[in-house]
Design a protein around this nucleic acid. Structure first.
Lengths: 159, 159
DNA sequence: TCTTGTGGTGAAGTTAACTTGAGGAATTAG
DNA sequence: CTAATTCCTCAAGTTAACTTCACCACAAGA
């Protein structure tokens, strides 16, 4: 008896459950990503979502990028540069990761700089902001919450 | 005529407005930090908050730490290790920044590793998760949003 | 003293990234 | 052919880190 492979993928495509298993993402998260324009599954005539294998890659890319600190908005923009109606090639993915690599490089440099100055700034106990190298407002690593979030630099006087 | 210095600091201590100016933080944020146990100003008999100079340092520490990606919960815990009823010394701040430096070191190492493997993983276009070095679940850099957020590693099969 | 600030207190709103729940339709297993 | 799954939609809830608002009290200066 032929052991029927329990694949939730009809000729129409992969089900959300299948994608969920393979990526570890909850179906609700995957639907959310669709709202955010990160994946664009097509629908069966009865309205169920069907994905392609390439979508697993897209979602993996999302997870990795998030772990690197990118927001889904940024990720969406990056993914938008992938070809719309053609399965992305190796070269497509390489191009997209290039930008992220740049960003990563910058952030690593930034953090290294901060670390090296930590002892001289917080560690020394002075925290005199006017001398402090941590003043650097070019910090790009923050974007949570609401309203303005400014890294010190508005207070030119000493403490 | 002696130009009266417009310092909002009565013998009772520094006002929230003064602290706000010096740190660049909005008064609302400073009050919020109080709720979160990060600063503990005392009150005048009429209920106004009065801060100490050391609080500016605490708040600066908070801002710097946040820019490094620490949550205020983590920061609060770190600050709790400062002496409660004594102005923190140089040594106190050094001890506290030591832990953060460790964390920073780890994160820099992590990001560097990720960057170095980016080309070989996303860049190559394979994204075969079972081979991918980005699998690494020891990633500590994420903690936003609700519910479980797991970095791939639950999906041992290939994509 | 009178008029502007500052300051204080809730309560409610905001963004991001999702989850949870209710109620109903399709699909699949036995 | 049922029963059990899986899926769908829409609305509302959640956490973090604050902001905004309304409304009232004190404080400072001309």
């Amino acid at each position: 008896m032929k052991q029927k492979p329990k694949l939730r993928l009809r000729p129409t495509g992969l089900t959300i459950g299948f994608i969920s298993e393979r990526t570890g993402l909850a179906p609700s998260a995957i639907r959310y990503y669709e709202e955010e324009g990160i994946v664009h599954p097509h629908r069966t005539d009865t309205g169920q979502r069907r994905y392609e294998r390439a979508d697993i890659r897209r979602l993996s890319f999302v997870m990795i990028s998030q772990s690197l600190g990118f927001s889904i908005a940024e990720i969406r923009i990056a993914l938008d540069s992938l070809p719309a109606h053609r399965t992305p090639t190796k070269a497509d993915w390489q191009a997209i990761s290039e930008k992220f690599r740049k960003d990563l490089d910058a952030r690593i440099a930034q953090m290294t700089k901060l670390r090296d100055q930590l002892d001289g700034c917080i560690g020394c106990g002075c925290l005199s902001l006017s001398n402090c190298k941590l003043y650097n407002p070019d910090d790009r690593a923050r974007s949570r919450g609401t309203g303005p979030r400014y890294l010190m630099g508005d207070t030119p006087s000493d403490l």
